[in-house]
């Protein structure tokens, strides 16, 4: 029996704002196993990024607060660690990369300086060895002539190269888990394909786990092993990638997939999901998706459904999951 590397249990993160409580993440539970890529997918405001930030305790407090839950990393509850202890986890055991590499790279230092800083902070290496290691990392993410590029400033690199440099930095301490928040969203489609392939290759070589946060089911289909679909702060469907794409059992997952134009068939109309994403300050009663759902019945209005087990490892938060296919 495999043991999960990361186990998130009943994570609940709220933001206490002037306008009211934003329940960004509500009772979210999932596991990430060693060497797998778990995708967290959903539209803007569904709580996927807040989930990622909560794991590293990077939520701004106030207004944010992790209200409940456990985040077990190798059996250790990160929520119980002191800030000092967390610093030993961040960038070392768990790394994170973000959508826009330009905002997370410091423009006044070379990428080499920045990668070396990360290495020297967590590993006892002198400057020369750290530089050697940094060149090795740049080579690993397939940046051409790394011994020259190491002295480039971020603005001298293209978007794709910058994201590679970010990945090199994030991986320089051989983390066991990489949290990648929309890593390819700012990139062109050809560059996206390359960065995704790189991520997948390195993840296999280093036997690292990845939590990939994205709004794009296309990205999920390219790299994911398992998928958690989020809507209005909840996981609504959770399971192996083949099930999510071919045997989905939640009407929201189905709606998301059918909203994307198919290349193979020419259809005149798309099956759009009607209505709007609900206001997080004013979520509907019962199932959060019911106002937009084609399968809704009276019961959906009354009570929030639990996660039903469709089969081992595949769950759906829909009362009518049996009819949703």
């Amino acid at each position: 029996m495999r043991h999960p590397l990361l186990e998130v249990r009943s994570l609940t993160t709220h933001f206490f704002t002037e306008d009211g409580i934003v329940r960004a993440v509500e009772d979210v539970s999932f596991e990430i196993y060693p060497g797998e890529i778990l995708c967290l997918v959903g539209e803007s405001g569904c709580g996927k990024s807040v989930t990622g930030l909560s794991i590293l305790k990077l939520i701004p407090i106030p207004p944010g607060q992790i209200v409940r839950g456990e985040i077990l990393f190798n059996g250790r509850d990160l929520l119980k660690l002191s800030e000092k202890e967390m610093e030993g986890v961040r960038g070392n055991e768990i790394s994170m990369i973000f959508q826009e590499p330009m905002t997370s790279l410091n423009p006044v230092f070379t990428i080499g300086d920045q990668i070396m800083e990360a290495i020297q902070l967590h590993q006892k290496l002198n400057k020369r060895d750290a530089r050697k290691k940094a060149i090795e990392m740049l080579d690993r993410v397939k940046i051409p002539s790394p011994e020259k590029r190491i002295d480039s400033y971020p603005h001298q690199l293209s978007g794709g190269m910058r994201q590679r440099a970010m990945i090199a930095m994030a991986l320089s301490c051989q983390p066991k888990l990489l949290i990648a928040d929309e890593p390819t969203t700012a990139l062109d489609v050809t560059i996206q394909a390359e960065v995704l392939r790189l991520l997948r290759e390195i993840q296999r070589e280093m036997e690292m786990s990845v939590m990939l946060i994205t709004h794009d089911l296309g990205v999920v289909s390219e790299v994911g092993d398992r998928v958690a679909v989020m809507y209005a702060g909840r996981i609504v469907e959770y399971g192996p990638i083949e099930d999510i794409f071919h045997e989905m059992r939640h009407p929201y997952t189905r709606g998301l997939l059918e909203s994307i134009p198919q290349l193979e068939v020419k259809k005149t109309r798309l099956n759009a999901i009607p209505g709007q994403v609900p206001n997080p300050l004013n979520l509907p009663e019962g199932c959060k998706f019911h106002p937009r759902c084609p399968l809704r019945i009276e019961d959906c209005r009354r009570e929030e459904p639990p996660l039903f087990e469709v089969k081992e490892g595949h769950y759906s938060r829909c009362l009518r999951w049996k009819e949703c296919r």
Binding site: T190, A193, E194, R197, E222
Partner: peptide
């Protein structure tokens, strides 16, 4: 460009040819 479009089918992954940046 067409090859780079994600296929929305996990079974059709490793078919892409890449070109250099």
């Amino acid at each position: 460009l067409l090859q780079a479009i994600p296929r929305l089918d996990p079974a059709k992954r490793e078919e892409k040819i890449f070109f250099k940046e």
